[in-house]
């Protein structure tokens, strides 16, 4: 038979188990913490945009003035070059041979000057001999005139020989210039970003499909910020701007406006597929920053906040947002 207290005890136990289930089954779900703290704006009202780091100087594709076989490439990818440093040399044997000819020509024309000088001295001596005779009767007028003319002729030949020297010197300099043009030098200081030629290859003059060599100046980096066209009217040139490195908001930098692209372009979302989606149109603003404050690479994405008036209180800007 059922003892008297069985049911009440069972009931008390059941209720306790119910309470336990309630307490145990309703623990709050733990909150997943972010891996990296997200960047927040330091401004009360602002426009947020995504920025991409790019080099200040656009990439310089190096060309050659004269086509030819490449003899020597003097730099590697990544080398820092100063303006005037040799980048590569084109085969110069033809020009060197011509230089030899020009030099020989110069020597010959210089010799011709000596010959003409000697001839001039000879005629001068003969003229002076006859002019030293005080008694005019002793010499014939004809003889005197011939000697005088011969001296004039010799002087003219000397001038001509000297002019010949100048000409051959100029020709020599021209060949020298050709030789110089076969050596391609860096137009500005910068970094060698790409080298597409090797010794033995033909370097064509003119615009090709790929640059022979690419130079860029990475001393100064810019951040290109995309601003949604719907927020573009709130953009102010004088507004302060701050950029945060993605993944670590400890790295941030103040930005200085360089210019605003006057043309609003369609924003592309690079999906890596053969086609790209066009999202919306964006206003692009370029900012410069102190490179020492931020370990950023060209092409890296940044979170950018630009101080701007509140959407409710903002008045349209007084002037057109055009190029600085």
């Amino acid at each position: 038979m059922l003892p008297k207290y069985t049911l009440p005890l069972l009931a008390a136990g059941g209720f306790a188990f119910g309470v336990y289930t309630v307490v145990n089954g309703n623990q709050p779900v733990p909150v997943a913490q972010p891996v990296a703290e997200p960047a927040n704006s330091p401004f009360p009202t602002f426009i947020a945009g995504s920025g991409i780091v790019e080099a200040k100087s656009q990439n310089i594709s190096i060309g050659t003035p004269l086509g030819g076989i490449v003899l020597q490439v003097a730099v590697k990818v990544g080398d820092m070059v100063k303006a005037g440093d040799i980048l590569f040399r084109i085969d110069d044997r033809e020009a060197l041979a011509e230089l030899g000819v020009r030099k020989a020509n110069l020597a010959r024309s210089k010799a011709a000057v000596g010959e003409a000088e000697a001839s001039a001295i000879d005629t001068k001596t003969l003229l002076e001999l006859i002019e030293a005779v005080t008694d005019r009767r002793a010499i014939s007028t004809e003889d005197l005139d011939r000697r005088r003319n011969a001296h004039l002729l010799a002087k003219a030949r000397l001038e001509s020989a000297r002019a010949q020297v100048l000409q051959t010197e100029a020709e020599l300099a021209s060949t020298q210039t050709t030789l110089d043009r076969l050596v391609v030098r860096a137009p500005v200081a910068g970094k060698v970003l790409q080298v597409n030629i090797r010794p033995g290859e033909f370097a064509p003059a003119g615009v090709g499909t790929s640059a022979l060599m690419v130079l860029g100046n990475l001393d100064q980096l810019h951040i290109r910020v995309d601003i949604d066209e719907n927020d573009a009217w709130r953009f102010r040139k004088e507004g302060n701007a701050v950029a945060y490195l993605r993944g670590n908001r400890q790295f941030k930098t103040d930005l200085k406006l360089v210019w605003v692209e006057p043309y609003v372009i369609p924003k592309r979302s690079l999906t890596g597929d053969s086609t790209e989606r066009v999202d919306t149109r964006v206003l692009q603003a370029l900012y410069s920053f102190n490179r020492a404050t931020l370990p950023a690479y060209v092409g890296q994405q940044m979170d950018v906040f630009i101080e701007a008036p509140d959407a409710d209180s903002a008045q349209p800007p007084m002037h057109q947002p055009d190029q600085k």
């Binding site: 049911l7 009931a11 059941g14 209720f15 289930t21």
Partner: peptide, 10 residues
Amino acid sequence: YGLGVGLTAL
């Protein structure tokens, strides 16, 4: 009540 709640929890 106690038994019912206990059975539900079970």
